[in-house]
Structures are given as C-alpha cells and as structure tokens.
Design a protein around this nucleic acid. Structure first.
Lengths: 338, 338
DNA sequence: GAAAAAAACGTTTGCGCAAACGTTTTTTTC
DNA sequence: GAAAAAAACGTTTGCGCAAACGTTTTTTTC
C-alpha cells in the first residue's frame, strides 16, 4: 500500500541510510545518489512515517488541548491562536472537549498519554475539587485561564479581579451607584475572582455590595438569570440597580436579549458590561461594553511556555498574569436622573 | 523515563507476550500471572504506547479535521458534533485551521499523511480552483458543506438552494416584494447555490431579481456591506428593498448592527433573514429569523461515513444532502404599508 | 499407561525509521 | 609511493508493541 523507506532504497539502488539522510538532510549525499533517491520518492509517492519516526525519536510533535467546549466563542478564539502558534512551531493539536465532565477528562488524559503527546494545554472550567491532575502525569502541562489545585504546572491567565474592577469603576464614573453582578458558577476560580473585583471597586467607592447572582456562563443562562432579576425588580422584591456587571459576554448577550424582550432598553434603562470581548460583542445591539481578555496573547504564551518545557529550557513553573482592558461601547451610559 | 512492556514483563516475571495479552485481553492468562502483571503495571505506572501500536497495526485511530477557521461559530458548532461522535467511536481529531490559504492546506495535508491519520474531514471554504486534492492522497476523505472539483470522496451538505428558497418564500408570504440578497464570496459553491434559491423563489413569484451583493461571510463584512447598501439606498441610487436574505448568520449579525447604527429598525424598516442558525442567533436584538442547518447531524454523519470507509465497509462514494428548516424569530415582519 | 489433546505460557519477527557504527574508495600528505 | 585522511556511502540496532509461531506441562482419552 504505502511505500516505506525500504522500497525507496531498493528503487533508487541505495541503502535505507542514504534515503534517510536525503530526506532529512542529515548527511552529505552525492549528487547522483540524491537524484536517484528523489526520483524514487516521487515515483513511489513516498511519504515518511511520523509514526515510526516518533517511536524512534520519542517525541510526537503533537500536543493535547483540553477545552470545556470548542463551540464556546471565548474558548474557540483562544484555540485559534493556540493552533496558529503551534503551526508555526511545528506542533499539531489534538482537540478534546471535556464538557467539564471529570470522567471524560480522565478518559482523554489516558488516551493522550498513550498517544505520547509532547505536552498538554488545559483550558478547563470545572470545579477544582472535581479534578486533580494525576500526579503520575509526567508530561509538561500549561493551564490556561484557571488554576488547578495541585498545580505543579505553568499557568497563563488574565487578571480577572482587575478586569471587573475596571468594569465597575467605569460604571461608577458614569454615575451609577446600584451596580449588580451576574457571576459564573459558584466555586469556579475565575468567577470568584471577578466577583472580588466588583466588590473591591464598590468598597473603594464606599458603596455596599449590591445584588449578586450566579449564572452558568452560557447565553441561555444569562437570558434566564436576567429574566429572574427583572421579575424580582418589577415585583419590588429588590431595589433595581441601574447597571449590571456580567462576568462573561455570552451571558451578557443573553441578558441583553432578556432586557429587550421585557420592553426595556439598554443602556437607557440598564447599563451592561460584559467580560471577554468575544468577536461578536462588537455587533450586538447595542454594541457591548466589555472587558477584553488578551485571548491571542494567552494562546501564544501558553504554547510558548509549553514548548519551553518540552525542550527542557526551563524547569521552574511559571505563572503569567495578563492585563485586561476595558472596551467602552454602547451598552453603558451615564445614569439618567429619574 | 516511561516504562515499556519489557519493564513490566521483567517486573512481573512473565514474557512480554503475556503482558500484551493481559493488557489487550487477547488470550487467556492464568490468575496469578494476570495478577502479577496488573501489579507491575500499577507499580511502574505503565501506559501502553499508541505510537508503537500504530506502527504495528498500521492505523492510528486519529482523523484530520481541516476547517477554515475554528473560531467561526458555524464551523465550531459542526466541529463540536464531529468531536463528540469521534470520541464515542474511539477516534481522535487533529485540528487544522486553513484560513482558506492553499499553501497552508497543502502543508497540513502533507503533515497529516506523515502522521498516518486514518481519514480526513474537510470543511473548507476556499475556491474550487484554488484547491484540488492531490490525487495521490490515498486516504478516506469526507467533504462537509461544500464540493471539491475532483471529488472522488464522500460529501455531506445542506440543501443550500432549498434553504434560501424557504427564507425568500417566508418574506414573500409576509408581503415583501423587494427582497435583496447578501451572498458570500463569488464562486464559492454554497454561496452560489444560496443565490440560486433566492432567485428561484423570486422567479416563482413572478418577481424580478432585486439587488445582489457579495460579502465575505464575516460579521465585519456584513456590517460594511450593509452600510454600503444603506448609503446607496439613501442616495436613491437604488430602490430600497424591504427585506434582505443574508447568506450566513455572522453577516446577518453584522448587518443588524449596521442597520441600527443608521437609526433604522429591524424588522420595522427592514426584515432580515440569516442562514446557519448559530447559537447566538437566538439572542440577537431582535432575535434572528434564519435558516437552520442541521449542524449536529452533519457532524455525526460525516464521522460515520468516514469510519465506514476506513473500515472498508463501503466502497462507492456517497453524497448526503440534509434538509434545512426555517426558524422564524423577530427579525422579519409583515411589510408595512408606507 | 501411552498417545493425543488441552492449557498456559514463551520466543521471535517485523512494523518504518534515525543514527551509531562500519566499510570501501579516493585523495592528500610527506 | 606508502600511510593517513577524507569522501561517500552501507549494515545494523533498537524504539515498543501485536501476534504468529513454538514449547512445556498437565489433563484427557481409550
């Protein structure tokens, strides 16, 4: 079926050694021999086997990438830049969706170890207690976006707390005093840190913390959670805030939808700030004011840190904290006097 | 470093053959021997090498997946269902973004052949003339969403033409008579077919084709193209249509943004229908009426057809044409009398 | 109780390659 | 012109495994 180095050698009337050296340029080979080998390669459509090469060289130039869900734009945008940098550095990526399910993650880790991937990029949003990396996992690992309990590995993340601080401060500057927060699932570290940032900004302005609710980081969740909030406000069960800090863009987009569905307007009746700055945030109605995570930089650095480890150029673990920035668009406005 | 079957054999005082048979359950092994092998595996943290196994068995249980851009929600949603089915069937996926660049695709095809992937899933949107599959590519291939010139391979796609026909008919039913179309890049087969559907529906209603413009299937492109359209209409260079069929959701979302930015309202001043039904379409403002592509079914069938070929269960090429359906939401409304 | 059959393992090969190690031929050195 | 060096290749090994092929011991059969 597929021809091997042996077939090429026979066809070119040289040794397999010579074929190997022509293919890899690892030793001088005379002009005629080179010529004959190249001809044979072409005629037999020879493609060297990475499988055999990997067995010999003990590396695969392949990385495992675990993400909760590749159709979440936040993750897919990070994935994109990871893939891009991998391509440039000569690595391939095996895509693994975990859906935050520990058994699925465990299964994938096993498979990736069997495949002898050179390293792992972990973007996983499950609760810390649910998932500890097996200690025996003797393989370079870079965590992206969130810590893991027993982390003996590198980490790249955004300064979540600083991000929501920026968002909240922006709303304060616009005159808002009642600023609610829609966070992610309880116990999830990025979510917890974002809550802290919101609280810190309020405290700094000598304001009480306002309403805090938890969503699930999906659009549908943001939509439903916002509907509940609006209902509570309309029934006067709670004082109505004039602004909401929403801890990711997907929920913010769902929330926007809910607000409009109830006949209210953003930002006239309610200012909304998101978090992540996914590509579509620029095109919502109104365009979403949000905290931009440097997703491209995250991906690039994650790959570079991982490759450093793979090549043994660094032994100490390293944490890279990237700075988010506020993108002011149309979903926030000055507080209207009632 | 990592232990091999040899180490396990020595530790358990059996032959490598026995270890292999215990690991794979391919031959009866006595209770004590089994016990000793399992102990040794645990103590040495032995993980069998898929690399060596692949070299021996001549398969990798790995598929290549080429997509134009994994951060495009339409593709990422298909990818998700592909990954899901692969996981169930015991295959891994290597993620390859091509960005519609032929040289990048060529490079990836070479790498995937070297990696000896068992098959290929191709979701690629580049122009047919730019990219022909190398004839020597002796490997099962399934095309998703679009044809390729020399296609000796399987194909899964949506009935594009039928889709835009549904969309256009819906607008006609609402009383619209001037219905424009914003298509994708010229020469791209799904785009061309969608244009045909729009034309066919108009013709069936004995109407002239209205304005046709070409975007690039991105949000930004949809935004800009819509701004140009609006400018042309406001300068009375063109009669203003009351509705637009937009050939994917990303452009539709960009277009929505442009319309609102110009102070107009959807659907009051302009009805808009999208195509794809990406997840966020439900949450736009107004929620987007769109043609749903059965993305999950596409992914599942693509994987299953590919695995059939890999296992040699089918030799004839096969084309699967899936039926889209219209999702009526808030971006379309009855034509208002002026 | 000897021959045949069954049970339970072990030895060896080959998958395709990279590269250490070796060999032959030609050229250089003095 | 003989010894040494250089040029240009070839032979062989081992990476880790699956499985064909083989061997030894025990049990069954008549």
């Amino acid at each position: 079926m597929t021809s091997s180095i042996k077939d090429v050698a026979k066809h070119a009337q040289v040794s397999i050694s010579t074929v190997s050296h022509v293919v890899n340029g690892t030793r001088f080979v005379g002009a005629q021999a080179t010529e004959r080998v190249q001809m044979a390669i072409k005629e037999l459509s020879y493609v060297p086997s990475s499988v055999a090469r990997s067995l010999k060289s003990q590396n695969t130039h392949t990385l495992g990438m675990l993400v909760p869900n590749c159709s979440n734009p936040y993750f897919s945008e990070i994935m994109r830049s990871i893939e891009e940098r991998c391509f440039e550095l000569g690595y391939n990526l095996i895509l693994c969706n975990t859906y935050d399910r520990p058994e699925r993650q465990t299964k994938y880790l096993q498979i990736l170890m069997e495949k002898r991937v050179d390293g792992l990029i972990l973007i996983t949003a499950s609760k810390p207690d649910q998932w500890r990396l097996p200690a025996k996992l003797k393989m370079p690992v870079v965590l992206v976006d969130r810590e893991v309990n027993n982390h003996y590995c590198d980490l790249v993340e955004t300064a979540h707390e600083h991000g929501t601080k920026l968002a909240t401060q922006h709303l304060l500057d616009l005159g808002h005093r009642h600023i609610a927060c829609m966070a992610g699932p309880k116990g999830l570290s990025p979510s917890d840190q974002r809550i802290k940032g919101w609280q810190a900004a309020l405290q700094q302005a000598s304001l009480h913390s306002s309403v805090l609710v938890h969503g699930d980081f999906t659009s549908q969740g943001g939509y439903e959670t916002m509907l509940e909030l609006l209902a509570a406000w309309q029934n006067h069960q709670q004082a109505k805030p004039s602004a909401v800090v929403i801890c990711n863009d997907l929920m913010a987009i769902g929330a926007l939808c809910a607000v409009h569905e109830q006949g209210l307007q953003v930002p006239r009746d309610l200012s909304i700030v998101g978090f992540d700055d996914i590509e579509l945030s620029r095109f919502t109605n109104p365009p979403l004011t949000t905290v931009r995570q440097p997703k491209q930089a995250m991906g690039i650095h994650a790959v570079e840190m991982l490759v450093e480890r793979i090549k043994g150029k660094r032994s100490a673990t390293q944490t890279l904290l990237l700075t988010p920035e506020l993108c002011v668009r149309g979903s926030t406005a000055k507080l209207m006097a009632d």
